[in-house]
Design a protein around this nucleic acid. Structure first.
Length: 595
RNA sequence: GGUCCUGUAGUUCAAUGGAUAGAACGAAAGUUUCCUAAACUUUAAAUUUGGGUUCGAUUCCCAGCGGGACUACCA
């Protein structure tokens, strides 16, 4: 941002001096020069053409002349149709290279001591294993956390596990009836998958019962409501809420299986939480807030006994906050956890990574907290709303069995990575090295595939086509990194000292383009933080790797006879490898030394 | 019905209101006695339609058409 800020300030002065125009010295007025034009940075002068009463070309020339005279960093300028293109002195680029090419923290700010940003993500139910939708959630949450840290914010990552409710009772009941005491140990099944299996078993039997009842003359709705299994499940939930020891014990056991399974999946994905909340431990808190709102007259008791809030004047509907039987709904619980988190962490911001199907819910949550309960943290609530992962057949539906299981998908990616690596047969890896590499490549490809898409947009996943390893993918970037690392090892073997200083020398086009691109990295990290968008980092890494490969293709390094040029190119390569590693780490993706 | 989101090459994705709309996959054609060819080069191929605002619109506004979500005492 150094250049942009300097130029923006000089631009402000120039416009004032030349035409008595006042503008904000906004660094965003200075943008990278578009490919195909001469220059490094560009100012668009159209906005001031009218006020200055000059032609775009004349205006650009006059401003350019002022900047040239007043700024040391500018070498030259040219004007094309109102675009003022500035060329930066090579000295600036060379100095940047000398200063930053071995800085592993390049592009990252020191953590400040401001109030933390709290980010909730994952938020699974304990009645079924994680699927592709959860993967997008988890990857986004983790990556945004890393990006915010890199922007200097203290971050607290939290999970909220929905561990109670009718859905869990369904799995429990089916296991009691049809499980024959099956456990993860006895079946060799991962705990979350085992519990998920009985959730499906429940649904199958439940459907069968409904069918029979309909044949006896009941309507579909009646059958759904009167089937013996659902009555039993409800009874079980009632017992759970009453604290029945047997039900509670089974609940604890089966949830324990699920947590063990989740932990494996989380570990493999490389994510962790600073704190995990459980709905069973927090759902009561919300009720006191609902009471508080009732006392204040912010909510009202409907004639059927439920507590509701009216937002018809905000263009929304009325929303139930407490069921007529006094039990809590999702909203009740979210009110409580928000309060709890505020008291525990006093965060400047509370980010909820939740799919866009819940936009309405979070509009209401925020309104209730800020407008109705007048909580100081209401405005801190931020819904990081992301798009659905769709299959060619449409949305994933767990009940219809059209889900892509998270563990299966990771296994498949590993196998793909293994297959491609073995097909190339380039290196002899030990079994341990190979295993690590396949995991790195397979999961990298998966993570990148998901994170490169703008979070707010829906995306498509086609299970029939495996995720690519070529083109705009993680393996492409990983490969570029590995290549550079290999060069650096060779350089070290040949006794090239990368800490030596560069003499005065000039840069070729390829080199300058690369340095210019590396200069963009810190800005990109900040932009990714402002927009909560790992996609910006992913696309940056791809551009950098692509540009490096282009450079590498026709620029000799070890064969270069001029030792100074050789040194420059190696330093530049090292810098690229560090930034690639740093950027990929922000996405939660590791890069190999060899592949 | 109401509210909101969305529409870019055959396909999957890019483009703070700025220049000639970028990539990748797929298709066609090339590059290896040379630092890792999971690479590189070249070709063909796109802004849903109609208005408006603007010096300038893929981007902002309005309308139509297409797709999706929400509109639960589920989460």
């Amino acid at each position: 941002m150094i250049l942009e800020t300097q130029i923006a300030n000089a631009l402000q002065n120039a416009l004032k001096n030349l035409y008595n125009i006042d503008i904000e010295a906004d660094p965003a007025l200075v943008q990278p020069t578009r490919k195909g034009f001469t220059g490094d940075l560009t100012v668009v002068v159209f906005p001031w053409v009218k006020v200055a009463r000059k032609s775009p070309d004349a205006l650009g020339a006059e401003i350019g002349q002022q900047l040239l005279e007043n700024l040391d960093c500018i070498q030259d300028f040219n004007v094309v149709k109102g675009y003022l293109n500035l060329q930066i002195k090579e000295d600036f680029w060379l100095q940047l290279l000398e200063q930053e090419s071995d800085n592993e923290g390049y592009g990252r700010l020191e953590t400040s001591d401001e109030a933390p940003v709290l980010i909730e993500y994952s938020s699974p139910n304990t009645n079924k294993p994680l699927h592709l939708g959860h993967i997008r959630n988890n990857l986004l949450g983790h990556s945004v956390s890393q990006i915010l840290k890199a922007c200097g914010h203290p971050v607290v990552q939290v999970n909220l596990v929905n561990d109670r409710g009718i859905h869990i009772c369904k799995s429990m009941l089916a296991w009691l009836k049809y499980g024959n005491g099956e456990t993860p140990e006895s079946s060799g099944m991962k705990g979350d998958h085992l519990v998920g299996k009985y959730y499906v078993v429940f649904d199958q039997h439940y459907k069968q019962e409904q069918k029979e009842l309909i044949e006896q003359g009941l309507t579909e709705d009646e059958a759904k409501d009167k089937a013996p299994l659902i009555l039993e499940a409800r009874e079980m939930l009632r017992k759970w809420e009453a604290g029945d020891p047997e039900v509670r014990e089974l609940w604890a056991t089966m949830n324990g299986w699920v947590y063990a399974g989740f932990d494996q999946t989380y570990n493999r994905l490389g994510i962790h939480f600073d704190k995990t909340y459980y709905e069973s431990q927090t759902y009561l808190l919300g009720k006191s807030l609902v009471q508080e709102g009732l006392d204040k007259g912010a909510f009202y008791k409907h004639e059927d006994g439920s507590v509701r809030v009216d937002f018809t004047d905000e263009g929304l509907d009325e929303k139930v906050l407490l069921r007529k039987d006094g039990t809590s709904v999702y909203m009740t619980q979210d009110l409580g956890t928000a309060q709890l988190r505020y008291e525990e962490f006093h965060p400047q911001k509370m980010i909820y990574v939740v799919g866009n199907e819940q936009n309405y819910h979070f509009d209401v949550l925020k309104l209730v907290l800020s407008k109705k309960l007048e909580k100081p943290f209401g405005e801190a609530v931020y819904h990081l709303s992301y798009g659905m992962v769709e299959l060619p057949s449409g949305k994933m539906k767990s009940r219809e069995g059209t889900v892509v299981d998270a563990d299966d998908l990771m296994d498949a990616m590993y196998e793909e990575a293994k297959k491609s690596t073995e097909a190339l047969g380039k290196f002899q890896f030990t079994p341990e090295e190979a295993d690590k590499l396949y995991e790195m490549i397979g999961l990298g490809a998966l993570k990148y595939f998901i994170l490169k898409v703008d979070p707010s947009k829906n995306m498509l996943f086609n299970p029939a086509e495996s995720i690519d390893f070529n083109g705009n993918t993680a393996p492409f970037i990983q490969y570029t990194h590995a290549r550079i690392r290999s060069m650096l090892r060779k350089g070290a073997e040949n006794g090239i000292d990368l800490s030596a200083n560069l003499p005065q020398l000039s840069l070729n086009e390829e080199e300058k383009t690369l340095i210019n691109l590396l200069y963009q990295y810190p800005k990109t990290v900040l932009a990714a933080g402002d927009n909560f968008s790992p996609a910006l980092i992913a696309n940056y890494c791809y551009d950098l790797a692509k540009q490096f490969n282009h450079f590498y293709q026709d620029t000799p390094i070890f064969k270069e006879e001029d030792a100074a040029k050789r040194l420059l190119r190696l330093k530049l390569s090292r810098w690229v490898s560090l930034v690639l590693r740093s950027g990929m780490a922000l996405l939660g993706i590791e890069v190999p030394e060899k592949m």
